[in-house]
């Protein structure tokens, strides 16, 4: 579904990605783990066009999207849940969800997707008219995910969805990720919480200072000695 070939990105004078190769297969959960500054966020931001790459290509559904605007990529079925949730704090929960469906015109389909979101996140339905800025951190994360789903994506990129959440909520978020994947959305997830990410992932990549250092099925990496020492705390 998504294929990245020899991707180089220079970001603020730094050679942030040094020719990475990455594949996301349809229907799977793929995760990208790595330390701070390894280039995980840059990878996601480049995939959705917020950062322009200087070399290499990005293919989505077999089309080269390397030079497309962010907007065009979203229309083709990509979506991102950005780091730090980035809900629009001064807009209501409902308006945030509407923005997720911004390019869609089919009202009945949007309505039925809203119902689906309310099923996934009953708490959002209770708070529809509330400003998103007044929600708790966990609720904001749910809104960010719900908003992304409103575009009916085929591939959802998630940047540190567990960041800053209480352990109980982290578990809930990962359950929801699995549930969304079960319902047919492919997921590319980046996480500091390597244990939870590897546990849920079908396939995983380890990023180290702009290079893919290791890759393999999630469960394999979970048992890999090196990964254990560096990312899972021994």
């Amino acid at each position: 579904m998504l294929r990245i070939e020899n991707l180089h990105v220079y970001y603020g004078g730094i050679h942030a990605l040094k020719g990475i190769e990455l594949k996301v297969m349809e229907g799977k959960i793929i995760t990208l783990i790595g330390a701070n500054g390894a280039g995980k966020s840059t990878t996601l931001r480049t995939i959705c066009g917020l950062v322009k790459n200087q070399q290499g290509n990005i293919f989505f559904k077999d089309k080269d999207i390397t030079n497309l605007e962010t907007r065009e990529r979203i229309i083709r079925g990509l979506v991102m849940v950005p780091e730090g949730r980035r809900v629009f704090p001064n807009l209501t929960v409902y308006e945030n969800l509407q923005l997720g469906a911004f390019v869609r015109k089919n009202m009945p389909a949007i309505k039925s997707d809203l119902k689906w979101i309310y099923q996934l996140f009953p708490r959002l339905e209770e708070r529809l008219t509330q400003k998103a800025g007044t929600l708790s951190g966990g609720e904001q994360q749910m809104l960010a995910v719900g908003r992304a789903l409103m575009s009916r994506p085929s591939l959802m990129l998630m940047d540190e969805p567990s960041l800053g959440l209480a352990p109980l909520l982290v578990r809930e978020i990962f359950q929801i990720i699995a549930e969304i994947n079960n319902q047919g959305t492919t997921i590319l997830l980046i996480e500091q919480n390597a244990y939870a990410a590897l546990n849920i992932a079908d396939y995983a990549y380890v990023l180290e200072t702009g290079n893919i250092a290791m890759e393999g099925p999630g469960k394999d990496l979970l048992n890999n000695q090196e990964v254990k020492e560096i990312y899972l705390g021994g």
Partner: peptide
């Protein structure tokens, strides 16, 4: 209103 709060995220919503 979305752009005036957060232009980058507005872009992620496929807003022109």
């Amino acid at each position: 209103r979305a752009i005036s709060t957060d232009t980058e995220t507005a872009r992620l919503m496929a807003i022109d």
